[in-house]
Design a protein around this nucleic acid. Sequence first.
DNA 1: TAGATTGTTAATCGATTAACAATC
DNA 2: TAGATTGTTAATCGATTAACAATC
Lengths: 214, 214
Amino acid sequence: MNKHEKISPAVIRRLPKYYRYLGELNKVGINKTSSRELSEMTGFSASQIRQDLNNFGGFGQQGFGYDVGNLRNEIGKILGLDKKYKIIIVGAGNIGQAIANYTGFYEADYEVVALFDKNPKLKGFSIKDALILDSDNMEEFLKNEHIDIAVICTPKSVSQQVAEQLVRCGIKAIWNFAPKDLKMPEGVYVENVHLNESLFSLTYYYNKMKKESE
Amino acid sequence: MNKHEKISPAVIRRLPKYYRYLGELNKVGINKTSSRELSEMTGFSASQIRQDLNNFGGFGQQGFGYDVGNLRNEIGKILGLDKKYKIIIVGAGNIGQAIANYTGFYEADYEVVALFDKNPKLKGFSIKDALILDSDNMEEFLKNEHIDIAVICTPKSVSQQVAEQLVRCGIKAIWNFAPKDLKMPEGVYVENVHLNESLFSLTYYYNKMKKESE
DNA sequence: TAGATTGTTAATCGATTAACAATC
DNA sequence: TAGATTGTTAATCGATTAACAATC
């Protein structure tokens, strides 16, 4: 039986934040914390934090609190950060290159093994240790290498088509930066980073504040 | 009185999606739609869509549906996409440059007017029409130019400090790409794009699917 | 008019918060 | 032991869904 079966997405979205703050505590040598303390750091209520953690088991000690290193480890295991992941990036334009260069993923073991692009001018260049290859070779590449996660950084006009190609090659996890929703079969998980939606939402609140302060 | 006062963030997050799909309908010349049709496109329930829209007023016609162009316009106005926004980007590394180059914002009138970076090697280069300037000149720059939105693409180690500097210069809207939460005073809105949290969440669901298919 | 679809109220569902017994 | 804080149940709150009258 899978214990995590009915965990709500809202809970899962909060886990990385706990993980991050526990990492910060760890770094400065603090090895004991409490839901109240985590509440102050994260802005979530202490009650909510306890509820969240107890979805996965009792990581704390009554009357005492949580062991920072242990709790961080446990959350890491829940998220799967104790494993290695191989990534390809499809579309080696601005965003694709930025992701390939991004160093913010160091906490876990993600490795970008290749980028793919249609533009022949990019062919042969590499970012960090990842070569930029021709899109035409992608299917062949995916037959020979096990890839966990594919990142879509193509123009939105081809994103659906690229996604379908990836799925045909066995990809089950897609990180989608193209501003378009992908229609995917069951068993493929898509995580969207829709920058325009994020900016539009920011714009709304910016205007709202302006109006209120008038 | 501000009609939008009590609108929940969940509603606001859905508006850009409606806006996008209405734009697509518009582009192919369809000028009439319904909550049922929008439901099929967006995946949100028809009931929810009607609820969402009625937070802002009756944009539809009973027995008929919604006029695509009109509804899109109205949502655009709610989000503030009918106005112009001047943007600066702080941190002209990979992410900062990618944002400056990003063309996905075309639907509204956002203009990146400058980037700022500490690295003297980047000084004088420009991306599209935006010059990369020295961070030391940022405060002076902000005194002379009215900027609506500042994008933080610095390393996380300096993001808080940069944000405080921006706020001192009158910035009220921050789009934060540094993987750290900003502590800001009332009246400053921060929209976070925490790529690591997004990737960790993807990782969780990827593993969950793998376990389930075993 | 009959059919369709909105706008809106009521019902349901799920997530958050409060409370407190268990226990370190 | 007394104080603190978890784990967990119950209460509350808010968001989503269902239902239907209004009306084009």
